[in-house]
Nucleic acid binder design. Sequence first.
DNA 1: AATGAATGAGCCTTCATTCAT
DNA 2: GATGAATGAAGGCTCATTCAT
Lengths: 192, 192, 192, 192
Amino acid sequence: MEATLNKQDLILSAALSLFADRGFDGTTVPMIAEAAKVGAGTIYRYFENKEALVNTLFEQGTLALTEATVGQLYQEGDDVRTQFRHFFYGMVTFAKQDINGLHFLVTHAQGWYLTLENKQLFEQLQKGLYAFCDYGIEQKMIRSMSSPVLIAIVFGAFKELYNAVRLGGVVLSAELIEQVEECCWNAIEYKK
Amino acid sequence: MEATLNKQDLILSAALSLFADRGFDGTTVPMIAEAAKVGAGTIYRYFENKEALVNTLFEQGTLALTEATVGQLYQEGDDVRTQFRHFFYGMVTFAKQDINGLHFLVTHAQGWYLTLENKQLFEQLQKGLYAFCDYGIEQKMIRSMSSPVLIAIVFGAFKELYNAVRLGGVVLSAELIEQVEECCWNAIEYKK
Amino acid sequence: MEATLNKQDLILSAALSLFADRGFDGTTVPMIAEAAKVGAGTIYRYFENKEALVNTLFEQGTLALTEATVGQLYQEGDDVRTQFRHFFYGMVTFAKQDINGLHFLVTHAQGWYLTLENKQLFEQLQKGLYAFCDYGIEQKMIRSMSSPVLIAIVFGAFKELYNAVRLGGVVLSAELIEQVEECCWNAIEYKK
Amino acid sequence: MEATLNKQDLILSAALSLFADRGFDGTTVPMIAEAAKVGAGTIYRYFENKEALVNTLFEQGTLALTEATVGQLYQEGDDVRTQFRHFFYGMVTFAKQDINGLHFLVTHAQGWYLTLENKQLFEQLQKGLYAFCDYGIEQKMIRSMSSPVLIAIVFGAFKELYNAVRLGGVVLSAELIEQVEECCWNAIEYKK
DNA sequence: AATGAATGAGCCTTCATTCAT
DNA sequence: GATGAATGAAGGCTCATTCAT
């Protein structure tokens, strides 16, 4: 069944866990090899070096998160409140899929080892979210504030929450997620 | 003015910046020495090793943040809303004092190099904040949710915001801070 | 011929020479690596650290010397004089096999880096020799003196002699060895 | 009373103990400073560097041992047996004076840090002893053997014995010393 | 293709030596 | 003269990377 996981995926998956837990610099290639159950040399058949590996993970993650969030916005006929919900549940889905993926992305987004392309890719994601905020402000649905601040609030809250989940301190029920979504919306919604 | 800074403080300050930017494992002792403008060996006159250095910073930071936040709570005669404001402005003051300090703390709180004492110190801080949430819930001023979740939301938002400030993407005016404080309160306040 | 020597043996052999010549603290790992014609890192594939390396050598040497000396004693039917000869030629054989081995052992037997096990192993060797002296005294073949003193005399003489050989100042012929053996026996034999 | 010991002597004395115990390379300058109860910098007021310090000790020791041994030989009217006794008791006196001095000399005589002058000084001492042996052989009082071998036997035995004393395993009474002297003489005396 | 032994650059740390006080 | 804080060269050791099998 899961024998279909090829070596490259094994390596990527092992590396993601370790990077999320210990950071790029705190993770050694032998650690990844052992966790992926491959020889250390094998990693270099699939990735030019350790930096290429982290950049591959970062790119995949950023693209997936972009798709899961920005990609949910602007669905025809949706009002800003609904779009926000879609955006939020996009993050939830992304986070659920791989509890480490989100933490890896946010803890490695400023890494010195990231390529310019990947740094820009992450900025694109942020800009997409800023644009949504600006649209919501225009529609008088979202508080009139600098959109990076608004995104920081929502995204920061979400990120911290899932970090607590990842570390085992919090268990999220569907109901709780719904409440958190409401909290986040309350934080940024436009008040008459 | 600042010529009074002794070598130990120079080292601590340089290390804090570098740890905040590159993480513990991504920062080398020679990097710290160069940034502090001291010889590499000098660092070992003040700190037993690199781990002792990071633990000193972590302890100082955690104590200061505890004082700045939990220490602001439960002032006589204050209602929950006012206490929250004090707590929030405590964080603002802390963050303003050393823009790297907050980011350092949160990015290093799970580090393998932390002593048990420091891990417990940080947990104490969290527990203090949870207790405040529970009190607010009891007073029907804060939404009835698991307090770690509430703290994650407020603290995550704040942290992300100041990270944006640290990275230069956001400039905080007094007015903007006030608004953010309101946002955070809105996120968690009790709704009839 | 000796192309069969594996890396571990190359390292052990190079380390033995250097330790014998310069002592443990005066020998650097890069020195050993160069002498063994391996990379410095390779040494750590075979030995946990420099101390483990010196302890391996010490253990091997002590066991071999014990076998070569104490192991020669108490052969059935041998009188004390013959046993002494066997003991002496056991040392000769040991010293010939590796001219550095004996000097390494005696110069490192008090080292702070030795494990308790190795210190005890060396003490066992000494005790074995003491026991032989006590036996010889009982048989009225060896002078009645404290056995550590008797052993110090014979062993010290032998050791110093082979150190002179090692340093190139003395060449030992079979005949000379025989004479030295007689000298040593004369030193400790029982006189009517 | 002993306040007359100046700093230089304090340093020399502390260094001698430490070198004898841990060897030159295993002894650090701060160790010496602490044992001598002076600042580390003070050592450099009296000695150009660590090597100069060890060479000073080695020179003093070699000269004193030469005086104590070779200096006792060839006293008018003494036969070879008596001269040997004087030589032997010269060593005893030397060793008694500073139990570490003898061990320091013999364990450091091949050190890479010794100056050529000091190496030659030590060789002179050896040559003086060789000459005595040759004289004794000529007089048919000492066994006809290569004199370095004879010296190795006597000196090696003596050295090892006093090392045992130094390490606390053996206590030498006047009577025991007399016996050991006899043993050593027996080892090398001419047999009809 | 896969491995892991081997390598050496670079890390953390120590310590001989200097120098301002 | 005496000190010990400061330094940086060098040591022990790790680990990213290569390559023979």
